[in-house]
């Protein structure tokens, strides 16, 4: 009987693998656990009435410069953006915004222990879409540059 053992084990394995092949595959990325939850307290009294964007940035961050024109365009389209300056000084930020234009409705300073921790960012820039009920709807890591990502953000923030 023992000589059938390898065949038996292999048959079971093969059956399982065959069954696995028929199952749908997992694809795509894992969403941030924040999506669908209420926006953490940003430490400011007044948030915009409708949907808005929360954008983490810094004057020392090169990719933030790349996404800057997108944010300016958002401002022209009437989309409110709350900027969170990550690990930066007010002087540097003021100079940076003066040089390039200010797309933000409000700028909050975060020394690395504020909203950046609550919202679990992995680096700058990083952007979130928050709806009128203060629920986080979207998250994007890296500069808003790709037209399809920009279109998605616009669609989400302008219901």
């Amino acid at each position: 009987m023992r000589r059938y053992l390898p065949l038996l084990i292999f048959t079971m394995l093969a059956l399982m693998l065959a069954y696995r092949l028929t199952m749908p595959r997992v694809t795509g990325t894992i969403d941030s656990p924040l999506i669908g939850k209420t926006l953490p307290d940003l430490g400011i009294a007044e948030l915009p009435k409708g949907p808005f964007i929360v954008n983490f940035f810094a004057s020392w961050c090169a990719p933030c410069t790349i996404e800057h024109p997108t944010l300016i365009q958002f401002k022209k389209d009437g989309i409110p953006i709350i900027g969170i300056a990550f690990n930066d000084t007010p002087e540097n930020i003021t100079a940076w915004l003066k040089k390039r234009g200010n797309p933000y409705k409000t700028v909050i300073y975060d020394a690395g222990d504020g909203p950046s921790v609550d919202m679990g960012i992995t680096g700058v820039p990083e952007s979130f879409v928050v709806d009128a009920e203060r629920i986080v709807r979207k998250r994007f890591q890296g500069p808003l540059e790709d037209p399809s990502v920009i279109a998605e953000f616009e669609a989400a923030v302008k219901p």
């Binding site: 000589r3 059938y4 292999f10 093969a14 065959a18 092949l21």
Partner: peptide, 24 residues
Amino acid sequence: GSFILALLIACCGGAFGLYAWRAP
């Protein structure tokens, strides 16, 4: 995937079957 699985079954199933037959 299906094709490689078929190959796997043919090769190993065949060999383990042959083994069960010839082992004695």
